[in-house]
């Protein structure tokens, strides 16, 4: 029996301990101050949805957590360990953080199965036979096992994104980052990806999700973080946020996207 549960090993302490902690994080792109003194704590098993207008820094924030973007100052702590700057330690840490991209980024020259096997074997040293077993079980779980031998380009966008989720899960990450996972999808494929994500959330996976899918935020999020202009403007539970946003900017943003 292969263990494909998304949940990380049972936490030893309380269920509310911090898994991802950002303290005073600042980042500039040239003159642009894209992240301004960000403080954010994500607890084990929590699903945090980050929303905000484009250019608000939400994708950048997501990418700093596995250091695909460097930061200028501040600290990011993952499961009690500060993010290493580079080298093997960083590579090891990245294996603990699953990442799902807007544009899927499946390895274009590898089959679907190989995409899910590769990281396990090359970054974690799992035996190929075992890795294949885990990969097939995960592909089954996201509903694309019958596509295992195809190349990514032969799959629909929704299928590719589900493979990308399986690829990230194969590393048994402590936390999953989703950077606008449905923004590049045709409308009819959005739900098949969101369903997988809701399933993950129900299984207790810690998730940080940058998205424009307000339905997902309402259904699956424990907390909504609203960003604008490189700052966290507001954070609260989804019900409070969508029905009674505190800040003017959040009210303005919601009025623009929820009117139709």
């Amino acid at each position: 029996m292969v263990d494909i549960s998304a949940a990380p090993p049972a936490p030893t302490g309380t269920t509310t301990d911090a898994l991802v902690e950002l303290r005073g994080v600042d980042k500039h792109f040239g003159a642009l101050h894209v992240l301004q003194n960000i403080d954010l704590t994500v607890r084990r098993g929590e699903v945090v949805v980050i929303i905000g207008p484009s250019g608000s820094g939400k994708s950048t924030l997501c990418r700093t957590i596995n250091r695909l973007e460097t930061i200028d100052s501040g600290t990011i702590v993952l499961d009690g360990v500060p993010l290493p700057a580079e080298g093997r330690a960083l590579a090891r840490l990245r294996a603990d953080v699953g990442m799902v991209f807007q544009s899927f980024n499946l390895f274009a020259h590898k089959t679907v199965l190989d995409n899910v096997v590769l990281g396990q074997v090359k970054a974690k040293g799992v035996k190929p036979a075992k890795a294949k077993e885990i990969a097939l079980a995960l592909l089954d779980r996201v509903g694309v096992r019958n596509q295992a031998d195809k190349l990514p380009a032969q799959l629909s966008g929704g299928q590719q994104q589900r493979v990308a989720i399986a690829r990230a899960l194969a590393m048994q990450p402590k936390v999953m980052l989703f950077d606008e996972p449905t923004s590049a999808l045709d409308p009819e494929m959005i739900n098949e990806v969101l369903d997988v994500m809701v399933g993950l959330a129900k299984d207790g996976m810690t998730m940080i999700v940058v998205t424009h899918e307000m339905g997902f935020a309402r259904r699956a999020a424990n907390r909504v973080v609203f960003m604008d202009g490189g700052q966290i403007v507001e954070e609260s539970d989804p019900e409070t946020f969508f029905t009674a946003p505190k800040s003017e900017r959040a009210r303005d943003f919601l009025s623009k996207i929820l009117t139709h």
């Binding site: 596995n66 695909l68 080298g87 093997r88 960083l90 590579a91 090891r92 840490l93 990245r94 294996a95 603990d96 953080v97 699953g98 990442m99 991209f101 544009s103 899927f104 980024n105 499946l106 390895f107 274009a108 590769l118 990281g119 090359k122 970054a123 974690k124 990308a164 690829r167 990230a168 590393m171």
Partner: peptide, 15 residues
């Protein structure tokens, strides 16, 4: 090769 390929490789822990 799109930059996303390298990012995905780094994201699964390849140096």
């Amino acid at each position: 090769v799109p930059v996303g390929q390298a990012e995905a490789a780094r994201a699964i822990g390849l140096s």
